[in-house]
Amino acid sequence: MKDETRNSDSRNSAFGLILFRVSIFAFRVSFSFWLSFSRVSIFAFRVSFPLWRWLRAVLDDDAYDRYLTHRVTLSEAERQRGGVEGSAALSPADFYRLRLEEKYSRPTRCC
């Protein structure tokens, strides 16, 4: 009886040990997966974000944002000099229309 109990205990502890090791292994695998996934994500983000910003800038998608930033910088400089602020900023629609009129009045596309 004692032997049986001892055997059953040792079987239980061996099973527990295996379970423990498997859990550790699963944790390590999933952790390394998560780690590499997050590394890949960070890498993809690092690569794609500048590309995205580049594409936006090349296609003039951020032209209005840049115009507003420029206005803020200019107003700040004017305020520091003690001058008065100029006219209000153009609306996105007006800025877009004016920018196109200017852009396409000179050679913009080549042969």
């Binding site: 998608d61 032209a63 209005y64 609306s91 996105p92 629609a93 800025f95 877009y96």
Partner: peptide, 14 residues
């Protein structure tokens, strides 16, 4: 789209 609905949003329209 670029003139009236989303002025200047070139990437969306493209």
């Amino acid at each position: 789209y670029l003139r009236y609905w989303r002025p200047g949003r070139v990437l969306e329209a493209t």
